[in-house]
Design a protein around this nucleic acid. Structure first.
Lengths: 336, 336
DNA sequence: TTGTACGCGTTATCAC
DNA sequence: GTGATAACGCGTACAA
């Protein structure tokens, strides 16, 4: 593997000259010299050694993203979108994105955290996981002690977090419901959990719905026991009362709803107007999802924002107020 | 930030001594010396600089994973599972996993590829994307020229690939269908695409089904035009003929099937026996999926295997015959 | 247990 | 304006 020195020898120039020509001071040298260098580099198949560059510059240019298997986590499509956002933003900042896996055990014994805290391995860390507040506080404290900047993804912390604006999403759906004349609605959710959206969605929706003139806000969210949930849904479909529309926690929620509706003799879609906290995806030829009125976070954008925020903290170590990112909206008339 | 030299000064020992005590030769020194070193390190808050270590050792200890947004891609849940597999295996091999995003443009102009090929930035690359064979050949050639080992994930190449054994999965489902007396089946798929599983699943299923005694193998897979697909499904449900069971490409496929069944006055699930190339997921409290007979690749395992294979190539640069990984199976009687 | 060379670049300073 | 010399970043490996 050819080194810079080899190139210097090959073209009869000194090592620093060659270095500068590959660096940001290329313009200080004559065209002739530059050509000589580039030709020699090509001849030798020279590849710059990033590790050496980083060491010389005193930077790691590395950001770690911590994920966690199992537990209370993001939808997987959100996950992969945020990853694409990370790499896009990282490319802009000329950073490398590294992956680390947090085991679900106790924090102090976790090998990943020990490495991140105990070795100079990166400039900053993005926590792409959902945990209890107290645990996040604990992690904040650990990283503060090392002055290692971290950013939280998808949690509404006061500082150093990037979070979807679930309130705006709920407001949009509330408006749509009321525009279509639905003043009595059913929210189909998931049980209270750690994941931010789980509690945020029904909370904000109820708030905005009532504020804007909505009247009845019912809710079904007993996912713990599938049979029980199916029973409740079935009961609802057989006796919807004044309720004229439903709002679903996410697109995945459609499946059991369709199944329950079918068991009650209702045709879905079409049998009951609905809106979803999720986007109608109709892009790839594989997409088999249905169009609907929706409002959902754009996790690719969130990923980019997380990297931007982290870079800000890396360049100037301090707490930064959290960023709440506007969701994306769609209205394709599944509310009739 | 304290360096090794600072620690050496602090405890009155030489730099190499301290280095060795932190390295693998700790046992060569007296307990007393070791304690002195560790205490000094703790006092100063010393963190080993990975970049310097790697440079000195002449390794990058880094593996890049290339992903691609859009295009013909894996299911997202497969994606995140493979990521967890990567980090698990990487931790075993003491490697770092870095993420890179391939834009869908022409290969030669892609910044990611240029960086990977033009700079010494990693020891090897995992391609976690699905492309046309000719493009993969092209990439193989580019990386061969640089002697940079790569591994393909989820594609049935002859060498250097890790791929789910779709044939075994199909065989399992065929057996289950026939055990339940279903000799006339419908396969619900997606249009022919680049993604390996798309063509592999119906192909292998037909093969095994016929071989084991199955009689009729019909198929619906026109996803390109959703209305057309719905129409076909509806027509099927209204006149299933001899067909007594269906096999679905993936769990996502359930939604339009349920919808179409409902429109035809059929209750799903229960209205028609089915099996799926996918696992019934009933782990998290958020899971709202239905139990069914299924067979699907374990992408977490595939991720681990990919890293293992890559490490083999890194340690001994040569082509390695591809690995076909056994799927995981479930039988929860959705076939009645 | 330590001195020294080394890995691979970058950058400040200096001479032509 | 061009290019070279030397010091530096942070560890590791080997001979002494």
């Amino acid at each position: 593997m050819a080194t810079l020195k080899d190139v210097a020898v090959e073209c009869g120039l000194s090592l620093p000259t060659v270095s500068q020509i590959f660096g940001s001071r290329s313009h200080l040298f004559s065209e002739e010299t530059r050509t000589k260098v580039f030709e020699a580099a090509t001849r030798l198949g020279y590849r710059r050694h990033i590790g050496a560059t980083n060491l010389a510059k005193g930077k790691t240019n590395t950001i770690f993203v911590v994920i966690m298997q199992g537990g209370d986590k993001l939808a997987t499509s959100d996950h992969i979108n945020s990853f694409i956002g990370f790499s896009e933003a990282a490319a802009m900042h000329k950073q490398q994105i590294c992956l680390a896996n947090l085991s679900e055990q106790n924090l102090s014994g976790d090998a990943t955290l020990q490495t991140l805290l105990g070795e100079k391995i990166c400039d900053g860390v993005i926590f792409n996981i959902v945990m209890q507040d107290t645990v996040m506080d604990e992690i904040d404290a650990l990283f503060n002690k090392e002055k290692l900047p971290i950013v939280w993804l998808n949690t509404p912390r006061k500082f150093n977090a990037v979070c979807p604006d679930e309130s705006r999403a709920a407001e949009f759906l509330a408006q749509k419901l009321l525009q279509h004349g639905h003043k009595h609605i059913l929210y189909v959710g998931v049980p209270m959990g750690i994941h931010f959206s789980v509690t945020a969605r029904p909370g904000f929706l109820r708030e905005h719905f009532k504020r804007l003139g909505g009247e009845t806000f019912k809710s079904i969210d007993n996912w713990g026991r599938p049979e029980c949930f199916r029973k409740k849904l079935k009961a609802f479909f057989e006796k919807p009362g004044k309720t004229t529309a439903m709002v679903l926690y996410s697109e995945t929620t459609l499946l059991p709803v369709f199944a329950a509706a079918s068991e009650s003799g209702l045709q879905m879609p079409g049998g009951f107007p609905y809106a979803i906290f999720d986007m109608p995806i109709d892009i790839s030829p594989f997409s088999i999802r249905l169009k609907h009125t929706g409002a959902a976070p754009d996790f690719r954008h969130l990923g980019r924002q997380a990297v931007d925020l982290l870079m800000e903290r890396i360049n100037d170590y301090r707490d930064i107020p959290s960023v709440f990112v506007d969701p994306i909206y769609a209205d394709t008339a599944s509310l009739k």
